[in-house]
Every structure is written in structure tokens, then in C-alpha cells.
Simulated scan of single mutants.
Amino acid sequence: MNLAALSTPAALVDVARMNRNIARMQQRLDALGVRFRPHVKTTKCEQIVRAQIAAGAQGITVSTLKEAEQFFDKGISDIVYAVGMVAGKLPQAFLLRRRGCDLKIIVDSVQSAESIVAFGREHREAFEVWIELDVDGHRSGIDPEDERLIAVGRTLVDGGMKLGGVLAHAGSSYEYNTREALVRIAEQERASAVRGAERLRAAGLPCPVVSIGSTPTALSAEHLEGVTEVRAGVYVMFDLVMHNVGVCDTSDIALSVLTTVIGHQEEKGWAIVDAGWMAMSRDRGTLRQQHDCGYGLVCTEAGDVLGDYIMSSANQEHGIVARIGAADKSIAERFPIGTRLRILPNHACATGAQHPEYHALSEDGALETWPRFYGW
């Protein structure tokens, strides 16, 4: 199959861009002297993860236990499930470990730690558990200075579990757009995670792993003293949010949605395409950034950005392409019915999740179909 024969809408992966992104991140973290454990929730795709591992990644991070199951079935065993564990999911995690998966789980409360201890004792399983730290007030985790950190650690160790380390994610890094701010939040993430590890060790508790990461901080950190590994995910594709943050160019964005012009509203300056929010997702991540791209930035079929044209709004299976600012009353001439365009996504994870497969486009024009994993 070639691009001309591909039905729309379709999720395209520019393989050359993807490989450059993979090499860029791996080379950076190799230079900083840390292990890289990519977060595979962005793509949930075996072929892409194989490329990351071939470049030097060691282990993976997942956001669902279904991802862990799917990738373990494909032979990848070193896995961190980076969502807080609750009692109801322990049987699923237990079965994975009994099958030979080196699955690590995380907690940020004494209650969850006690649940793991109770289940582990009942089933004679010493789970490896990492404690999630809150390094920026963005989401989950324990403040590194909070006494609960030591309490969780003691609960796990006294209960016979393996305390593997600490894990942090500076999600607030997505809110910045200057080099200075990104360097600052990257150092805050590093220093806070290292501080949490030091407090555990000072209390006589083991903490071999210090795991941090987000795409902006991984690409902005000036040093990673005290860190053992970094996790990042969206870097493999990049997207418009990352472009607005300032860590990639539009020419680095490897994921796009191929779509076809199916009609016009000329007086409004609209071209109607067959990719709506079911193809792009409802993610409006650029809305509060300095450049709002609607539901995505419009490119030619070949992938070249077309100036100020965006997908300004979207229904389920219809998208509206328009020019930012003054309406383009000649849009029907510019994009006749049948014109094929590519739309760069706001959020690669969300757009990818709308599609059952990727169509991987090589530089020579060849296409391969790469399935995605689904479910929890």
C-alpha cells in the first residue's frame, strides 16, 4: 500500500521523524549518564517500542495493566506500572509477576501500602513497590518532606515487600514555555526526588531507584546527579503542546491524521474534512498556550505546514478547516473537494488512542500497518 491508496481518516507515523526523535532523547540521556525507561502509553505499539529499545532504552513504563500484559506477551518483562496501585488491581499484577514479569508497582499512601502487604502475605508474593513523590503539586504523590513518606516505606519493608525506590513526574512542566523555566522545573524535579530518596535511606530504608521524568524536563535538565533513570513518552511523536512548550519544531512531529476535503462553506471560509474529533480527539491542549491550534495544525498531504490554517472546530466525523484571523473566502479554490491534508495533533497520546492502528510511512513512500494496544 502507498499513501495515495490509504483511506481517510488515518493515523500516519513519519518513520524518519520518529527515529530522529528516539535518537535525540536516547543520546541526551546517555550523555547525562542515566538509564532511560520510555513511557509507552503514548503509542501502545510494539513496533515503536522495539525501535526505542533498539536505540538503548532499558525497560518500559506503562499506564495500564493491560499494556503490561500486552508488552510482556511480546517478550518485554522489565515494566513499571506508573499509576497508583489499589487493592482491586492486585490480582492482575500478581498474575503478571507469577508469569515471570518483572513488574514494579507504585503507591503514595499508607492505606495502599497496607493493601499490598496484606495481599502479598496472603499469596506469598513480595511485590516490588516504588513510592510516588509529589515534586510540583501537579497530581499524585507524597511531598518528599512529608512524614508519610517514611511511614509508607516502613509499612512496605516491615510487611515483607521490596521497596524499590521513588518515582516522580513533573507534569507542571507542560505549563512553561521558556528555557529558563524548563531548566528550573527540571532541577526542582531532580532535587525533590533525590531528597525523598535521601530521607528514606537516612531512615534505614532501601531506595536503589530514583526515577523521574517528563518530555520537557528530560530535554531541559542540565544535570541528573542522584537520579538513576528517566521516563518520558510523548517525545517519540511530539505534538503541538510540546511545540508550544518549546522542546520541538513542527517538523519534529511524527504523528498526523490524514484527511480528505469533502465540502465547503465558502462565505464562512470553511473547508469541511472527514476527520472530526473521533479522529483527532477532543483534546484542546493548546487552548491556554500562546498559540491555540484548535483541534490541530493543517499540513499538505506531504506534511508541510500550511501557514495559519487549523482545524478550528470538530464534530464527531466532520472537521472544519479555517484560517486563523480573516476568513479565507477562496478556500474552495485553495482546497478543492478531494484534497488530502494532514493534521498535526495537539496531544499525540490522545489522537493515537482514537485509532486502532498506525500507518507507518517511510521516506521511500512505503507504508506498513502497526497495530495499537487497547484496554485496561
Rank of each mutant, 00 (worst) to 15 (best):
L163N: 02
N177K: 08
E267N: 14
Q47S: 14
R37I: 01
L361P: 00
V135R: 01
V183G: 09
R190T: 12
D308R: 14
A126M: 10
S109P: 08
Q354E: 15
A181T: 09
V261A: 05
A87W: 06
A322M: 14
P38M: 01
A366E: 12
Y81Q: 06
S77I: 00
W130E: 15
R372A: 07
R199D: 10
E189N: 09
C101K: 09
I79H: 03
E125R: 02
D146L: 10
N315M: 12
T300R: 03
V166Q: 01
L32I: 02
Q289P: 11
D143C: 04
P208L: 02
L182V: 04
A181I: 07
P345V: 03
H355G: 06
S77H: 05
S192W: 09
A23W: 07
G365D: 06
G196S: 13
L240W: 04
V152I: 13
S77N: 10
G160A: 10
Q290F: 10
A350S: 15
L341S: 10
G84D: 08
R201W: 08
H318P: 03
R372M: 12
R199G: 09
R201V: 15
V321C: 09
S362D: 08
P356Y: 05
G246K: 02
L255W: 02
G171T: 04
C207Y: 07
F94I: 05
S140I: 10
Q27P: 06
L163I: 12
L90T: 06
R342Q: 15
D328W: 06
E317G: 08
P206A: 11
V62M: 02
A55L: 09
A218C: 15
S172K: 08
Q58M: 13
A168I: 02
L12Y: 00
P144A: 15
G269T: 02
E301K: 13
F71A: 02
R97V: 09
T61M: 14
S77L: 00
Q92R: 09
D249Y: 04
M85Y: 03
G319E: 04
G204K: 14
G164R: 00
E132G: 10
A55R: 00
A322W: 07
A151H: 11
L65K: 00
R190A: 12
I272R: 10
V194Q: 03
S220D: 04
G33K: 10
E189G: 09
D134C: 08
A218W: 09
F373W: 08
G120I: 11
K329L: 15
A353R: 11
G196R: 13
K268F: 14
P91I: 04
C299G: 00
C349N: 12
K89V: 07
E225Y: 09
I253D: 00
L219H: 01
I150C: 07
R334S: 12
G338V: 01
D239H: 01
H318I: 10
V152M: 11
V261F: 05
Y174P: 06
D146P: 00
A10D: 11
V209E: 15
I106M: 03
K66L: 01
T300N: 02
G137T: 04
A366H: 11
T250F: 05
I310K: 12
A118P: 00
G100Y: 02
G352S: 06
A350F: 14
T300Y: 06
M237L: 13
R124C: 08
N177A: 09
C293A: 13
